[in-house]
């Protein structure tokens, strides 16, 4: 029983990391149909922001707290810059953005290698987050709990922004029907850039969380990017709740399978399950009903 609970918690914490990474993608991929392969490098940028802050701020706890908003800004600015420079020219060719942003991601990885060196670097976790809590026989790592809380907080914040603010209303309008939003007086290009800023910024926050999971390096983001895209595809475009459910289900599935078989078999089984799932619901778990043929 404790084994099952322990594995479930591992799964939930895998899911939380996936969720943090996928949240930003849900926005950028969901809203604009843009496949941003450089999203992984925005995660990396967030992770290195934490690392750099720790060089100047001695307290690990303080630096982590400062890193969260700063990483959001750094990664978000990179995202907005990318959108302005390249992606806005490619909205009519969404599949090509995949290759273009892949090129960008190669350059950003090399930039990180030149600045910070090729080997992975380790950040210090605050003392508060290094311990464990035991509840009813199961061990919960504090850092994992922190990531879970952070992920849920981000979901909550994003939901509130999308639901309640004028910006959120504009974003939802553009997602649902770009043409209609434009004729209603919404500057869709401006909304796109803001969306990209927020989505990329969330990647930066995910990067901060990843520093608590393990060492970080130039390829930190790439390792997660495909899984994150799968979460968005299965969850459904433009819907937060789909991504939230999918991230946790995939995380738990992965953890349970890893326990009963091996990591490699687990990955393959999860992928087959996803292909099978898309047979059942090709548009993902939750879909926006639109009248468009595409």
């Amino acid at each position: 029983m404790t084994v099952i609970l322990n594995q479930s918690f591992t799964g939930i914490s895998i899911g939380a990391v996936l969720l943090l990474i996928a949240l930003g993608l849900t926005l950028t991929f969901g809203q604009m149909g843009v496949i941003n392969m450089a999203h992984g490098e925005f995660i990396m940028a967030g992770a290195y922001t934490t690392y750099v802050l720790q060089q100047s701020i001695s307290g690990a706890g303080v630096s982590l707290l400062v890193a969260l908003p700063l990483a959001f800004l750094v990664a978000g600015s990179l995202g907005a810059l990318l959108e302005w420079l390249l992606i806005r020219r490619l909205y009519t060719r969404p599949l090509d953005t995949l290759l273009v942003t892949w090129g960008v991601s190669l350059m950003l990885q090399q930039l990180a290698r030149d600045i910070f060196g090729a080997p992975n670097v380790q950040t210090r976790a605050p003392d508060l987050l290094t311990g464990n809590i035991s509840v009813g026989g199961i061990t919960l790592a504090n850092s994992r709990l922190f990531i879970l809380g952070l992920a849920l907080l981000c979901v909550l914040g994003l939901t509130l922004v999308l639901r309640l603010t004028p910006l959120g209303r504009r974003i939802r309008a553009v997602v649902q029907n770009r043409d209609l939003a434009e004729v209603s007086g919404i500057a869709s290009e401006q909304v796109d850039r803001t969306t990209f800023f927020i989505g990329s910024g969330l990647a930066g926050v995910a990067g901060v969380a990843l520093t608590l999971v393990g060492p970080i390096g130039p390829t930190t983001g790439t390792n997660y990017i495909v899984d994150a895209f799968l979460v968005v595809v299965v969850g459904g475009i433009g819907q937060l709740k789909g991504s939230v459910i999918t991230a946790f289900v995939l995380g738990v599935l992965q953890a349970v399978l890893e326990y009963s078989t091996t990591i490699s078999v687990a990955k393959v089984v999860v992928l087959v399950a996803i292909v099978a799932f898309l047979q059942w619901r090709p548009q993902g778990l939750y879909t926006l009903r639109t009248r468009s043929l595409a």
Partner: peptide, 9 residues
């Protein structure tokens, strides 16, 4: 994009 990501996975 769905197909691209599936084949990549």
């Amino acid at each position: 994009a769905y197909f691209a990501i599936l084949s990549q996975a």
